[in-house]
Structure formats: C-alpha cells, structure tokens
Design a protein around this nucleic acid. Structure first.
Lengths: 238, 238
DNA sequence: TCGCTCAAAAATGGATACAAAAAGAGGCTG
DNA sequence: CAGCCTCTTTTTGTATCCATTTTTGAGCGA
C-alpha cells in the first residue's frame, strides 16, 4: 500500500526530524533518486510534499535545502499550535461535544490518572502519559467541528516540537517531570469540565494556559539543548 | 517566469473560487492535462498543490473532486484566520514593530482616512479601502516575527472568503457599507496605537474584535447569498 | 594575479511510455 | 432473476528522455 513516493517522504522526514540529515544541506531530485534507487518522479513528489510540510525549503533553480530549526522556529510553532488548539477547545465547548468525544477524553484522563497514581518507572510513565496525551489533544483538535483546524494543524504538525508526538522530557529530573505531568493532567480534567458545561471562554482560556505551559517548558528545554546537549525521549511516531 | 504547473494551478484555482468549476466535480490528471494541452506532469503538480490549499480533495483511486464550500467552511476559515491574526498582532506588539512596518500601517491608515473623508462613489470607495486594508493586514501577518503564521496563513488563504482579498461588500446599501468601513478604520487606528505602545494584550484583543466583526458580517452576508443571491464585489486577485 | 568569458556539466521542469490496480459494465451461470 | 465473474476502461504510479536554465570551472587576456 505504501507507494514509493510516500515511503521516501516518510524516510526522509524521519531523517530530518532526527537530525540524520544536516540542516542546511541540499537535496536534489537526482541525488535522492539515486540514493533510494528509484526514478526522479517519486523523489520529486516526496520533495514537494516535504516542502508543503515545511521541513525543506525550495531555492529557485537550486534544489531544496533542509530547513534549519532555530529556537525561534520552535517557539513560533508552539504559539501557532496553541492558538489553533485554544480555538478548537472554544469551538468544541460552544457546539457541544459528542458522546464519543466525551468518552475518549474521559478515557484518556482515566489512563493518565492511573498512571500517575501508580509507581511506574520514569520511561514507562512518560510513554504512557504521552500516548494518552496525544489521544486527548487529537480528540479535541480533530473533532472540534472546525475541520480547517485539523487540516491546518496537519500541515504544520511536522515541525519539530510542534508535533503532539514530540513532547520533550527531561529524564534527568524524574520528580520534576512527574509534577509537570500532574499539572498537565489536572488541566485536562478542568478542560473536560469546561467542555461538558459548554463554557467556551473557560475551555479556551484553559487550553491556552495548557499550551502556554508547554511553551514555557519547551523554552527552558531548548535553552538546555542548545547549551548543554540534553537528550529527549518520547519520540517521533508519524 | 511562471512555470506551466504554477500557471495551471493559478487558473484552476480561479476557476474554483469563481465557481467556474462545479463543486463536487471530478478532475483527473489526464483530463486537466488534455484541457490545457500539457503533459500529466504539471497537471499532477498543480493538483497536488491545490489539494494542499484545501480547494480539492483526493479520493483514493477516484481522482480529485472540487470541494464544495459550505457556510460552515466559511465560518471556520474566518475563525482560524482570526486566531492566527490576533496571535500575529500580539506577537508584533510584544516584539516591537520595525519602523518600516509602522510606516506601512500608518500609510494604510492615512489612505483609508482620506478615502472615507472624501465623497467618492461606492465602488471606488470599496476598491480603495480594500487595497489599503490588504496592505494593513498583510503587514501585520507577514512581518509579525512569526514566519510560521504567514506560512500557515498562505496555506489556507485560498479558501473563499477567508482570503484577505475576498472581503465581501453589500453594494445595495452604501450608507451602511461606509459606516462599516469607518468602524474598521477606527479599529485599525486603535491597533496601530496598541502596537506602538507594545501592548500585546490590547493588540490581540483589538484584532480579535476586528476579525470577529468580519465574521459576523460574513455570516450575515452568507445568509443573504444562500437565500437571495446577493452579489459580491472586491474580488479575488491572487 | 585578477577578472571576464565561454563552455561543459548538472539540475529542474516537462513529455511520454509503460505497468499495475481499481472501478464499471456487461455477460454468464446458478 | 440475481449474483458473480471477467474484460475493458480509466486512473494512478513510476521510469526515462528531452530541453532549458543555471552554475561552476577553466582558460585566456589584460
């Protein structure tokens, strides 16, 4: 089922977000085609798609170059995601969520609650929370009633750290991580309550705060990464 | 300098937004290629780009279909645009605008002010205001310091009525139109003031209100269009 | 030694040919 | 008469070839 072009796109995307491909490096159709032993056609398709995702840039007549992600890019991506997500929360609250969405959110919250209450090791804690977190946020973004939000989000989702799947963790400080996750969990609870009461303003404000926390944390994290080289976990399933 | 693919994309885009192409109709690569007497390669590129813009949808194994734009789609697009634009205003206020941006905004405001004070005919009034309005909003969106906002906006800008160039006017009621434009102008003035004072919260709130007015008006307009068939002006330069 | 020009090589955009897969229509069989 | 199977047509995905444009490098001249 995977066409050659989609396979290329997937592989190169992973190479870019994991840093296998140096930012600023150039990719040409011919080079990519030769590297994967396919013709230029799927290579061209893949590069066009990656450009639409914002991972590479097209230089007129000079091929594509890997975008180098700066601290500002990360902050920008989180800010945009926060704006979209708070709009989604507001919309969903005002239009009312379906029983299905409510069940999904509730299930996610139950999961994170039981995970946080248990005494699991850090890595397992992070993975479990991460999975439930993705479910929670995707349910809101994708089922909020404004399809354009989901559409827009998917277009920019591949930018590192903006993607839901790219939440960053500082495994060197388990206690603090656990606390941070508990705060996030409590915000999920409040969000669900606001959605149930169809309180658009409250849902919007809560989601905004929730995203803002992520931004603050990412900012701190980025500073560490750029200065000390701290590692990340909770990686990039697409 | 326009490549064949870009030309196709531009033409078909116009056909779609002007309604030349029936919503729901199918477009295949071969049909499009034959129609414009080009090969399938640029046709494929153009269709892929149009799909990224959200104007057409890809049905697996069944070609592309023209998306039919509903009232909800228009509201959704305006809501997303409002969220992005208020974020842009906030960002620009907090980071501080360059002298160049300030000059642009001031120039736009001067233009709309002189237009509104003069006694020009309706059509000329609308065209003049429209042009200045586009300059004002684009200056904020594109120069706010968050390039992802501009990038994101460009990806969704083609949805009818969400595009800056697609502001709608009800030419059957000139007095009311003039009043509406004056309100918009006054909001521009306030926005510039907030930006100058680097008051992010005020700039954000004002832009939100400004966009909200557009949404309300568009909602009213859409109702008319769908029920009475009122016409539009101020049309779609791309 | 520096700069200019011209040529060659490479890269992109477009055209076409080929294969595979899927949808539709029509006939065949139970 | 209905359901299924098959053949045809349509459509997509991929490979390759051609042309145009750009870049780079070498050589020559001042």
């Amino acid at each position: 089922m995977h066409s050659s072009a989609q396979h290329l796109q997937s592989v190169v995307r992973r190479q870019i977000v994991t840093g296998s491909r140096e930012p600023g490096a150039r990719i040409s159709e011919v080079a990519l085609a030769a590297e994967f032993d396919v013709s230029r056609t799927p290579a061209r398709t893949a590069l066009a798609s990656l450009e639409a995702e914002g991972l590479i840039e097209k230089r007129e007549g000079r091929g594509y170059t890997i975008r180098s992600i700066s601290k500002a890019d990360i902050s920008n991506a989180i800010a945009v995601r926060a704006a979209l997500e708070s709009l989604a929360a507001k919309t969903l609250a005002e239009t009312g969520m379906s029983d299905e969405v409510e069940a999904t959110l509730l299930s996610s919250i139950s999961t994170t609650e039981s995970i946080l209450e248990s005494d699991t090791p850090v890595q397992e804690l992070l993975d479990g929370y991460h999975a439930a977190n993705v479910i929670f946020h995707e349910a809101i973004m994708l089922k909020c009633g404004n399809d354009l939000i989901a559409h827009t989000f998917e277009r920019i989702a591949m930018l590192p750290l903006a993607k839901l799947g790219s939440l960053v963790f500082d495994t060197t400080n388990p206690r603090r991580e656990r606390m941070r996750l508990m705060v996030g969990h409590s915000q999920h609870v409040i969000l669900l309550d606001a959605l149930r009461q169809r309180d658009g303003a409250r849902a919007e404000a809560m989601m905004r705060e929730h995203s803002h926390a992520t931004l603050n944390y990412a900012d701190l994290f980025v500073r560490k990464v750029y200065e000390n080289g701290t590692r990340t976990t909770g990686g990039g399933k697409s």
